[in-house]
Every structure is written in structure tokens, then in C-alpha cells.
Design a protein around this nucleic acid. Structure first.
Lengths: 233, 233
DNA sequence: GAAGCTATTACAGGTTCATGACATGGCGTG
DNA sequence: CACGCCATGTCATGAACCTGTAATAGCTTC
């Protein structure tokens, strides 16, 4: 639908968000980073705009007046292949699996730091523009973001929700180091500050399933003193 | 929220402070250092301004008429990631932890010397903006700030946390001389005054790993009597 | 040559992370 | 409704690895 971006690294973004404060803040942030931005305050408006504005990516709030984000997502998917990044407020008890099944390419938890949102937008565009398929293969590991399945050496691996969310989040931006705090915020929706080793435990369980040699992790790497990163780097 | 600064080291500052004397003094001081400054006399006004002015950092007084600094801080955080430096009068028995939990990035006690405030602003911006441009190459040395990896001549170098933090900090502003005291504060979070030779030791260890000839350091240079500087000559 | 500053090295205490066990609670099933 | 399974969060343990400190040697400057 959208053609190549005007400039490398620059995207046409359609922002669908009803809260004017959040909307304006994100518009400013994205424009400040040289993206072209159009915005809508409701799902209807967003869908209408999309027929005229060739967006590369739609940033879609979940809680909208009228038809909600899920439905908007499905309708966009019904006609176009525009990438979709979902935006959910912390505590919405947002069902990630449901969101991604509705056709979203990624999701971000509010309040979101604009750098983070922009990083996810870039990552989504990188993925969709290079491969044109949401399936990615890293070594022996295959992650399918459409069907939410993971397999190693062709054999399907069943992952519990939290481990899947963690893997999807990390692998969305390979190489990027995420602190435990960041992961707690964006994967768990937690906002407590207590340094818990919760992330470690989940990483550990994930490794035991996806790594060939869990003791020498290839995919989910520890960055001592900082956090974790998805390899292979 | 804001995109890259107009010029290196220059920032868009939103100052929220009700006392006109303090406000004007700080405006003068910051403008004198080439920052772009907008100001507000109340929290409401500040929040409103922020939807139009793409600030890099908000300098926020704690005691404000109407909604107080903490609340303003939380509301800013709810929508943006603009850095926040809190300003509190001595004796306000300001709860640092509370402030930082509300989302502040740093705090400064009034009366504040403009140089100090400016230094904290710079420090805060360095921290948040170092995310933006991930990979930099200096001679044979490559520093990737996203994956937190360092390589020399293409070969990966493993660095322990403190050495990595030191390198990231120094290389963020090549050529800038940092005193040991500055480094202790910003890299180590220490605020003790005991001049320990801790920095020297860490520099030494870092050199042994990244320098081709550790005895003739090319990247981490000693500035006798002052401190250290990063620079591929 | 002396004083002051920095490099170099060694070492012990401390921190961080992996690992596995355990408790809790939700969810589906019988 | 009761049961059991599984996912998840918490905790204790141990090992590997840093890091701060101190002691000594080397270099610069006056």
C-alpha cells in the first residue's frame, strides 16, 4: 500500500489515539524525529484517513471511543498490509496474544518513552520491508509473529505466555540490550521498582526451551550489569 | 519527545518555576549558555506549554501554586519521556526517592549555581540521548551503544560493567576532559569525596583491553593534573 | 633531586547471575 | 464443585567474576 519511504529511516505514521495529550506529545516526538505524521482521534477517523494517507505504519491505541483497537486492527488487516503497532495503557490487562492475533506487528505499553516507540516502529518497518513476512529465522530458531509459534530445528516449541512475550519483545530488536527494569515495564506491565529476579527466572525458563545448550545461551544473552539481549550477535 | 538537539550540547529547556526572580535568573543563565528556554509559572501552564514546545528537558520546581511538582512530574511521565530535573528549596525536606519514583531523572537543591544546574541538565541529556546513535567508530575501535558491545579490529572485546560504563561515558563526548570527581559521580554514582585512585585503576584495566599499546594510550588519554579524556588523537 | 602525580599489579570481599526447589493461584477438566 | 496441572513469582544456594583498595614502581615537573 505504501511504497518506499520518502527517506531512509523516515516513515509515514498514522497515529490513532483519543487522548489529546498523548496524541500531541507523540506527534511532536515523531515529527521531531523526521517522520511524517497524521493523526486520528477515533477508529472510524483512522480508517477513513488510511484510505487517503499511505501510512507505512499505524500506531493504534487499544482503548478508543466507538470501535476499539482490536476491531480497527482487524479491519486494517482485511484490506491492507500496513504495519500496526498497538499501544495499551499499563493495567489494561492487555492480552498480547489476542492483540498479535488480531494482526498487530508489535505492541508497546503506555506510558511509553518516545525513543522506545520509535525504536519499535523502526524495528517493525525493518522486518516488514525486508522480508515481507513476519517469520524470522535466527540460526536454528524460527519465530513466526503471525501464528505466534516458535520452532527449533523444525520442531515446534510450546512456550507459556510470559516466555513468549519475552521472546517476542527481545527478538523484535535483535542486539538491543534491555535492562530488567525495562523488561518489567514493557513485558510484564509492572511498574514496581523492587529489583526482583523475576526476569532472570523467566529468561532461565525460556532458555531451557529454546537454547541448544542452555548453559551457553546463543539467543538470549546475559549482559552482566545491564540486562539481556537477543542474539545471535 | 524531542528529536536531536539543534546543536551538540544545546538543549530545549522548559523551566517551571513560580518565583519570578529565580525564574528570570535561570532563564538568563541558560540562555547565556545557548540553550533555548521557555518558562511557565505554574504546573498547569507548564503542562500546557509542553504540548506545543518540544522540550528536551523540563526543569521543575517542587513547590508550585496549584498542582505540585510531583504531580506535574507524574503527568509529564504519563505521556512523554522528556527528561525531568527537579528543583527543591533547601529545607523542603524533599524526598529524593519519592521524586525519582515520580519519574524525575535528577534533582538539584536551591539555591543553585547556574553552572551546576547546567551540568545536571547536560548529564541527564547525555544519559537519555546516548540511546539515539548506537554505533560509533573511533579508529580501530567500534562502540555499539545499543547492543553494548565493543570491538577492536573487528574482534569483539568483553568488558566488565564498570569499564564499559566508563568507556561509554568518556566516548559520549570525545575530547572532553572529565575529572576523577566527575567520573565518580556520573559513572560510579558515588558522592563521596575521598579522592581514591579508583578511577585510575579502572582506566588502567580498560586500557589493557581496548588499547593497542596500553603504555601509549590512544583512546583513553591522561590529562595530567585534571583527569581523563577520550579521543582518537 | 625532591615532590607530586600516575601506572601497574595483587588480592580479598562483595556483587551478580544461574540453577533448582517451592508456594501460590488460575484454569480447565472430570 | 473438586481436583490436578501448569504457569508464574519468590527464595536459597553456590559459583564465577568484578571491583575497590592498597602497596609499589615509574614518570613529570619544578
Amino acid at each position: 500500500m505504501s511504497g518506499p519511504p520518502i527517506l531512509e529511516g523516515m516513515a509515514r505514521v498514522l497515529l490513532v489515539e483519543d487522548d489529546p495529550n498523548v496524541r500531541n506529545a507523540l506527534i511532536l516526538a515523531l515529527k521531531g524525529r523526521d517522520h511524517e505524521v497524521e493523526s486520528a482521534a477515533s477508529g472510524e477517523e483512522g480508517l477513513e484517513l488510511l484510505t487517503r494517507f499511505a501510512a507505512d505504519v499505524v500506531v493504534l491505541d487499544l482503548m478508543l471511543p466507538g470501535i476499539d483497537g482490536f476491531e480497527v486492527c482487524r479491519r486494517i488487516r482485511a484490506t491492507t498490509s500496513t504495519s500496526i503497532v498497538m499501544l495499551s495503557a499499563r493495567g489494561d490487562d492487555f492480552d498480547v496474544v489476542g492483540g498479535l492475533e488480531a494482526g498487530a506487528d508489535d505492541y508497546v505499553v503506555k506510558p511509553v518513552r518516545p525513543q522506545v516507540l520509535e525504536a519499535r516502529i523502526r524495528a517493525v518497518l525493518r522486518r516488514t520491508e525486508s522480508v515481507a513476512s513476519p517469520v524470522e529465522t535466527y540460526g536454528t530458531l524460527r519465530v513466526d509473529r503471525a501464528s505466534l509459534t516458535v520452532s527449533r530445528n523444525g520442531r515446534r516449541i510450546a512456550l507459556p505466555p510470559m516466555e513468549l512475550r519475552l521472546l517476542l519483545h527481545l527478538s523484535a530488536i535483535p542486539g538491543q540490550v534491555f535492562s530488567r527494569q525495562q523488561l518489567l515495564e514493557s513485558v510484564w506491565d509492572h511498574d514496581y521498582l523492587g529489583d526482583s529476579r523475576l526476569v532472570d527466572a523467566c529468561v532461565q525458563r525460556l532458555r531451557s526451551k529454546i537454547e541448544d545448550v542452555p548453559a551457553e545461551p546463543k539467543y538470549v544473552q546475559t549482559v552482566r550489569g545491564f540486562g539481556y539481549r537477543f542474539g545471535p550477535v
